[in-house]
């Protein structure tokens, strides 16, 4: 806001230093939309959420009394705490699997696939984004459900005589769908960092006595560490906040912390919902802080 006003005064005020000042301020004008957007759509709402989390709800109305009660309440209910741990657990497992699948894919793509064919393959990775998120999650119902593809196939082979419900409405289904949803993020991020790798280095490592696995772990992985961490961040953090996937394919067994937040807000317990939201946000901030050093390549190469 203040920079906006400053530009205006500088532009109108007469004087010799005026053009310099104007151009100096002018170079910041480009930031104004971003600052406005960030301020109005992020910082202000965040402030409101912070306040809410320390306020109280009485008879479905928010009362401006400062209290730690919302946080205390969350940690006092065993089911909430265990949902928190389960969310963390699901997010870690889904991330590990998604990255575990994305790494060999990115490795294979950048090492063995001719450049001409890479772009179509990368497009194939992105193709799912052309369909809406909701549609992609719902489509899993037709695969895993009682009348779904998996059950029909099992019935056709004669392995089962009646449809099984075990494929849906529990954590495994949630993890499967999350892996499917977030694999492209991991694959694209990893590919862009592996692509620049000089494969002669792996040959050199093997020439010097390293096994293929040792060469990958000691030579390739340390050099693409920033890419791996970015991939983990792109996959892990959105999964922490997921609520549609567990709601659609997770059933009661697959509840995640996002569903708790939604429930609180739907039941007009805004202050408790705000507290949980902030717990998740705080956790993510801590996580990014821990990873911030590993994201710098400069340090690793000493150049």
């Amino acid at each position: 806001m203040s920079s906006d006003a400053g530009t205006a005064t500088a532009a109108r005020a007469p004087g010799e230093r005026l053009p310099r000042l104007a151009s100096a301020l002018g170079s910041y004008v480009g930031f104004v939309p971003a600052v406005l957007l960030l301020g109005l759509c992020f910082l202000v709402p965040l402030g409101i959420v912070v306040c809410y989390s320390f306020w109280d709800t009485v008879d479905y109305a928010v009362v401006h009394d400062w209290t730690l009660g919302n946080y205390r309440y969350f940690f006092s209910v065993g089911a909430y705490v265990s949902t928190m741990w389960a969310t963390l657990w699901v997010a870690v497992l889904s991330t590990v699997i998604a990255i575990g699948l994305a790494f060999p894919f990115a490795y294979w793509l950048s090492r063995y696939v001719p450049r001409k064919i890479r772009t179509p393959l990368l497009v194939l990775v992105i193709v799912p984004f052309w369909a809406s998120y909701l549609l992609r999650v719902y489509s899993w119902l037709t695969i895993l459900g009682e009348k779904g593809v998996v059950n029909r196939f099992l019935h056709w082979t004669g392995l089962t005589s009646h449809p099984l419900g075990i494929f849906l409405y529990d954590r495994p289904a949630v993890i499967l769908v999350l892996v499917y949803l977030y694999f492209p993020f991991g694959a694209l991020t990893l590919y862009s960092s592996i692509e620049r790798f000089d494969w002669n280095q792996l040959r050199a490592a093997m020439d010097l006595g390293a096994s293929p696995l040792q060469a990958i772990l000691r030579i390739l992985v340390p050099q693409i560490r920033p890419g791996i961490i970015t991939a983990v961040i792109f996959v892990f953090i959105p999964i922490l906040g997921e609520y549609l996937t567990p709601q659609i394919v997770g059933g009661t067994g697959g509840v995640m912390i996002g569903n708790l937040i939604v429930n609180f807000f739907q039941e007009a317990e805004y202050t408790r919902g705000a507290a949980i939201s902030l717990l998740v946000a705080g956790f993510i901030v801590v996580l990014l802080f821990v990873f911030r050093k590993s994201l710098s390549t400069k340090e690793a190469y000493g150049a």
């Binding site: 000089d198 002669n200 280095q201 040959r203 050199a204 490592a205 093997m206 010097l208 390293a210 096994s211």
Partner: peptide
């Protein structure tokens, strides 16, 4: 390669 008594200097050096 790693079982042969041979080592290589690569064209691009391939230093780590």
């Amino acid at each position: 390669p790693h079982k042969r008594p041979v080592n290589t200097v690569f064209q691009s050096y391939a230093l780590f």
